[in-house]
């Protein structure tokens, strides 16, 4: 692996997760800049589907699958024992990458939005101070550990196929159990197809302007019109009121998101909300108050009553996807 880059991928129940293609894309960018190869590492219980066969096309020279019965789901203690070098992303990555960094005694730059190479050293850019500044860092160590913010690295296809390798591995401590100190007893799965706001490419977020919890139905309909690409988010005001689960909250004390399209509906745009979504590619605001601060960060705004505007928007989007 000299001069190479290792992309640590994520799968769930044998299907590759969307962030994995993003991680390969980010790793490829570094690999090209360093003039090195990109190996992609997947830990799984068996064969991996969900586009794993196309990883070569996204820039992986070699795809290595390490199999162990305990790897069906992410199991932190087993994983960090099996992995040597890492480029990770996401919620799993936020758990795994610091462990690997501590084990290897190397630095980690988390949640980065850009990667590059300067004078042979890996550099990254990371949003800080609630997105109000960007920190550029150099990783003066090898391996350099980096985790990429979801949705920032758009996967790019390349006309090249990679090589796939698979090997069963043995993990001291049993993989899933970590010597019995931490065990996953149960996984309460979200409804099939439900997207997590942290990773959805489109987010339709609602605030107090929705008036009551039942009205979120109109946002769910709008999200549905995008054909499985959109999740429904929420402001803290409505989460605190118990209208929506905390997992959906966007902002300083909620999730940090960077979707391609963020539609803020009946959200005033308080600084703590902006902290979680200002790095979205395109922001649309629908608010009846033309002076609402959300319009200051929105690329496109409609001033009006959301109960008129949203159903119309849902119709128009349905026509597009019709």
């Amino acid at each position: 692996m000299s001069g190479g880059v290792l992309a640590v991928l994520e799968q769930r129940d044998g299907a590759l997760r969307k962030v994995s293609h993003e991680v390969v894309t980010g790793a490829r960018r570094l690999g090209d800049a360093l003039g090195g190869t990109v190996d992609a590492l997947v830990l799984a219980a068996g064969a991996v589907g969900g586009g794993a066969d196309q990883l070569g096309a996204f820039g992986a020279d070699k795809v290595i699958t390490l199999t162990h019965a305990a790897f069906a789901r992410y199991a932190p203690e087993g994983y960090s024992r099996a992995i040597a070098v890492v480029f990770a992303a996401s919620a799993t990555g936020k758990d795994l990458a610091p462990r690997v960094a501590a084990r290897l005694g190397v630095p980690l730059a988390q949640d980065v939005t850009d990667v590059g190479v300067e004078s042979g050293a890996v550099t990254v850019v990371r949003p800080v101070y609630a997105g109000k500044a960007l920190l550029k860092l150099k990783l003066a160590a090898s391996p350099a550990l980096v985790s990429l913010r979801p949705n920032v690295f758009t996967p790019v296809q390349r006309p090249k196929a990679g090589v796939a390798q698979s090997a069963a591995v043995d993990v001291p401590g049993g993989g899933g159990g970590g010597g019995g100190r931490v065990t996953v007893r149960e996984i309460k799965a979200a409804p099939a197809g439900a997207l997590d706001v942290a990773e959805a490419p489109i987010i339709v977020s609602g605030g107090r302007g929705l008036k009551e919890p039942a009205n979120f139905k109109i946002l769910e309909e709008l999200a549905g019109a995008f054909g499985g690409a959109a999740a429904v988010g929420a402001s803290r005001a409505v989460v605190d009121a118990g209208w929506r689960p905390h997992a959906d909250q966007v902002g300083q004390t909620g999730k940090t998101v960077s979707p391609t399209l963020y539609i803020a509906v009946g959200i005033s745009g308080a600084i703590q909300h902006l902290a979680g979504m200002r790095t979205s590619k395109v922001i649309v605001a629908i608010n009846k108050d033309k002076d609402a601060p959300i319009f200051k960060v929105a690329d496109y705004g409609i001033v009006g009553d959301l109960f008129d505007v949203v159903p119309k928007l849902t119709d128009e989007i349905r026509k597009l996807h019709g």
């Binding site: 997760r17 996401s90 799993t92 931490v182 065990t183 996953v184 996984i187 439900a194 997590d196 990773e199």
Partner: peptide, 11 residues
Amino acid sequence: EVEGGVEVVEF
């Protein structure tokens, strides 16, 4: 909370 669900973990 993990993407796609809630994990119940004993430690």
